[in-house]
Design a protein around this nucleic acid. Structure first.
Length: 490
RNA sequence: GGUGGGUUGGCGGAGAGGUUACGCACCGGAUUGCAAAUCCGUGAAGACCGGUUCGAUUCCGGUACCCACCUCCA
């Protein structure tokens, strides 16, 4: 059996992965807060985990893997949207409006992640909504966990809040390498007066009548963010499980707090054994932010015609623990490579198993960049069946993601360009006739004009011509070009 | 201020104490009416300063620069 090695943030070392139970692997990935479309950065941990899960499937079998990813649907931004709809005259209750907003955001999220070829979370291999818990469905478990923490002396009630007592957990700060005293020194937040220690964090907070809330021993309120993941992972995976993942920005405070809550509520258990954190995504060398104007969602890219498979390729071409930069140049390069590979594997059945070198690369702390080198090698040797089987382990060259390639190959035009398509066809026809008559001057002139506006073409061996519209094609000039070459629009 | 990560050839991006990473681009060649595509091939690197070593881009220390987190952003 292949030995998987993973960099465990908890120990800051690359370690052999030893499952608690090889027939029942359990993974938890912090999912999105469902207030809006997922931005590009949200996709990174999902794709990293997707490759990890595919690798685990390969090594341990699909039915041995349980992969849980939550939806955080308790959030001020969701509440704000619900309140806006209420104010706009909706007859629904606030709770129903919150659910409505969450539902539509979750549907978007599914569509976007599906487009990237990311597998849905699953329990022992079986895709089910249970593997994607919503925080609002686990409020009772959160309340119970808070009660346990209070009973064990790790939490206290103050003015309708329940707070975690960080001084009661000596290991607090271990994951992120900070001491409580360091954190206080660097803290820039105003400290609520009812906290025993400035770093104590909220497990439960009160809700007023304007906000969604649930009845609890501490009055009507809602859970703190961190307790949600502790309660849901315990409910679905048990108090000890194998791998917990997320972006490096969640290391502190979110994951630190999860550890504190879960380890104090279940002192005999180890909680997550391996912690995986991916580095952040940048755009053209800068942090993605709304103020810089370089903020965009996965859907924005898809709508602009960047295939999901290309996004996936770019994301995986950088190791997950390094900052990665999204650039147009990378997307173009990825598309060219994918196009070549798809041409190579067309009509080919995949080999029965991926190349051992590829599995080895992935087993070595998910070295996806190294895995690409293996794919390039297979392609260079003309091993199409091996390339296909291996690429699919990375979630590439999957049949369900081939649409963009098929469209380009069949020179199909998107709806907006239908009106000029007949003209282009006539121009190409004229070009073909000119070539046949060895009138290369005319042929080259037509080709140059079409290339100039972003319609590229290539000559097939049989004398036919394949043409396609590039991303930035300027179709407004087509009729002028047609007129120039003696073709009139009718 | 605290914590963590990074700096590799024109660009992107890995591994490894000594032996070609790989891809894109470039250049040369094959093919082509010319292109495109494809195929073959060459060249090119490891921030700076010290240390350990027979030997370091790879280990250790320092310096510079970049980034992230410390604010319920993956």
């Amino acid at each position: 059996m292949v030995q998987i090695r993973l960099t465990n943030t908890r120990t800051r070392r690359k370690e052999d992965f030893q499952p608690i139970d090889p027939t029942n692997l359990r993974l938890y990935l912090c999912g999105p807060t469902v207030y809006d479309r997922a931005h590009l950065g949200n996709a990174r941990p999902v794709l990293v985990f997707d490759v990890l899960v595919r690798l685990l499937h390969h090594v341990y079998g699909r039915e041995a893997v349980t992969y849980v990813r939550n939806f955080t649907d308790v959030d001020d931004k969701i509440n704000a949207e619900a309140q806006r709809r209420k104010a706009a005259g909706s007859a629904l209750s606030l709770e129903a409006l919150v659910a409505e907003r969450s539902d539509e955001t979750i549907a978007w999220y599914h569509a976007d992640m599906d487009a990237l070829g990311a597998m849905r979370p699953h329990i022992r291999g079986e895709v089910t909504p249970v593997a994607e818990p919503r925080a609002t469905a686990y409020i009772a478990q959160m309340i119970q966990m808070n009660l346990d923490l209070i009973a064990r002396g790790h939490a206290y009630e103050a003015e309708g809040h329940v707070l975690f007592d960080v001084r009661s957990f000596p290991d607090y700060g271990k994951l992120s390498g900070r001491s409580v005293d360091d954190m206080i020194a660097g803290a820039r937040v105003e400290v609520a007066p009812f906290k025993r220690d400035p770093m104590d964090f909220v497990l439960w907070k009160p809700s007023d009548d304007e906000l969604p809330g649930w009845d609890s021993p501490w009055g009507r309120g809602r859970p703190g963010w961190h307790i949600e993941c502790s309660a849901m992972s315990a409910a679905l995976l048990g108090p000890s499980f194998d791998i917990h993942g997320g972006g490096i920005d969640l290391q502190f405070p979110h994951h630190e707090n999860e550890i504190a809550q879960s380890c104090c509520a279940h002192p005999a258990e180890g909680f997550a054994r391996y912690w995986l954190h991916n580095e952040m995504l940048q755009v053209e060398g800068k942090k993605m932010s709304k103020s810089l104007g370089n903020f965009f969602t996965v859907r924005d890219l898809l709508d602009r015609g960047v295939p999901g498979e290309v996004i996936r390729f770019v994301m995986l071409s950088t190791h997950y623990r390094k900052p990665m930069d999204w650039t147009e140049a990378k997307a173009a390069e990825a598309e060219a490579v994918l196009r070549r590979w798809r041409g190579l594997v067309a009509g080919i059945e995949p080999a029965t198993s991926p190349a051992p070198a590829l599995v080895e690369a992935l087993a070595d702390d998910l070295n996806t960049a190294g895995a690409f080198a293996v794919l390039h090698d297979l392609a260079a040797r003309g091993d199409a069946a091996g390339l296909l089987a291996s690429a699919r382990m990375l979630g590439l060259l999957l049949p369900e993601m081939s649409e963009w390639y098929e469209d380009a190959k069949s020179t199909e035009w998107i709806a907006g360009s239908l009106s000029v398509e007949p003209l282009v066809r006539l121009l190409v026809q004229k070009l073909a006739e000119a070539r046949k008559a060895k009138d290369f001057a005319t042929a080259d002139a037509i080709r140059a004009d079409l290339t100039g506006i972003g319609i590229t073409l290539s000559y097939d061996p049989d004398g036919g011509i394949t043409y396609k519209r590039e991303q930035q094609a300027d179709l407004s000039q087509v009729s002028a070009i047609a007129a120039k070459h003696g073709i009139s629009a009718t």
